[in-house]
Nucleic acid binder design. Structure first.
Lengths: 221, 221
DNA sequence: GTACGATTCAAACAAACGTTTGATGGAGGC
DNA sequence: GCCTCCATCAAACGTTTGTTTGAATCGTAC
């Protein structure tokens, strides 16, 4: 057996099972049995289950964000400022390709990470995304200068949400909505998502008075 | 102790802990200890942990979707067809009020449900949302008639994603992005979200050649 | 061939889990 | 009084969990 092979097999199987069943509902026995390795191999190679979770996470999110930033770099050196659609594409293309062409369960793994209580994992996640959020926030702001920073921040959140949610659902769609809504390729996905995001991001700015605090004209309660 | 009190206390504490730690990382001992009731009370009142999860879920999602449909009913009897912004508001206002005024962790509970492997819970969730998805899909289609059904479906998914994701994050935002982006009221939230969604939903239709990949379902209309 | 560090293995560990049990307490009908 | 139904309780059940252990095995340099 080649060296390093056991670690990779564990990571692969763990990623699959974590995405399908969640971190806590996946036992090390499930993982090691599926990977065809010994139970103790996880603690030998990774130290603990929590460290394995981090390793599974970092193996994907690091290259993903690096790729996003590379594309954005190229964009910003060739045209200044880049068009909004290009910035959006730079943001959503890398994860879309991972999901549609590589591991379709990748985004469900993210969903698990969000709801995971471990503070360490949350911290890692925030750190991993800090630069991406900053760089893309600035790029979007330049492409849509009529917004203020507050607007840009929240629209970035909205964009992440619609992308992550729809990616996490793509696998389930045929089951819950029928075959006619299945999406087959990255290009088809982008053809739907990009017009939505570009239009949403470049919508008129938030009305000023609503930005102010405690506007309680809801009349509820 | 008033009758029915124990059940409510269990549901309240379970909702809180489920949202914070996930279903599997919350033990019945945590729940019953936090609620101040006996461990066996859960199995006595609900039958099993899985049934408790369903009960926690259904207590919220039933009234929520009923409220959405009531608002949409009123809209469709007063003006035909309702404006897009009104339809969007009818969809996002009920969950926003629950999150901002009632239990802020409500949306994280949804996130947990998505990633839960149990097929029964998924089925319940799909059934609970079927009518809402159908009715709101039709209302949006009438307000934005230049889209086809395929477009409407996916934009509905995008809308749900941006709403759910941003709501699930609102609590964390001050920690990861600083106080300046905190949102205080439902109206402030809507002032950001509605313009984004209305613009995104009414964006130009998906280009034909990208949409008609494998299924050519009558591209003209 | 021998020695040695790195890896794999079967076995066992204590802890935590969901669930079940049988006893206990109290309220209402007869 | 007595009985019944419903709810609560402490205790225990059998599993499953992550982790540890110590021996066995592999690859490689001497």
């Amino acid at each position: 057996m080649p060296p390093g092979d056991t670690k990779e097999k564990i990571l692969d199987e763990a990623e699959r099972l974590f995405a399908d069943h969640g971190f806590s509902d996946t036992s090390l026995r499930d993982i090691t049995a599926g990977a065809g390795v010994n139970l103790a191999a996880v603690n030998y190679h990774f130290g603990s289950k929590e460290e394995l979770i981090k390793a599974v996470f970092e193996r994907r999110v690091g290259p993903l964000n690096r790729q996003r930033l590379e594309i954005l770099d190229r964009l910003e050196t060739s045209s200044e400022p880049p068009a909004l659609a290009e910035v959006v594409d730079a943001f959503i293309d890398p994860p879309l390709r991972i999901c549609c062409e590589g591991s379709p369960i990748f985004m469900r793994l993210f969903g698990q990470t969000y709801s995971h209580p471990d503070a360490n994992l949350t911290r890692i996640m925030v750190e991993q995304f800090r630069e991406v959020a900053f760089r893309f926030g600035r790029a979007i702001h330049r492409a849509v200068p009529h917004l203020d920073e507050h607007d840009v921040f929240w629209r970035l959140v909205f964009m992440v949400g619609s992308m992550a949610h729809s990616l996490a659902l793509t696998e389930m769609v045929p089951k819950i909505a029928g075959e006619q809504h299945r999406i087959e390729s990255v290009e088809e996905f982008k053809a739907h998502l990009i017009p939505f995001l570009v239009a949403g991001l470049s919508a008129p700015a938030t009305p000023r008075q609503a930005s102010a605090k405690t506007t309680d004209r809801g009349g509820n309660r």
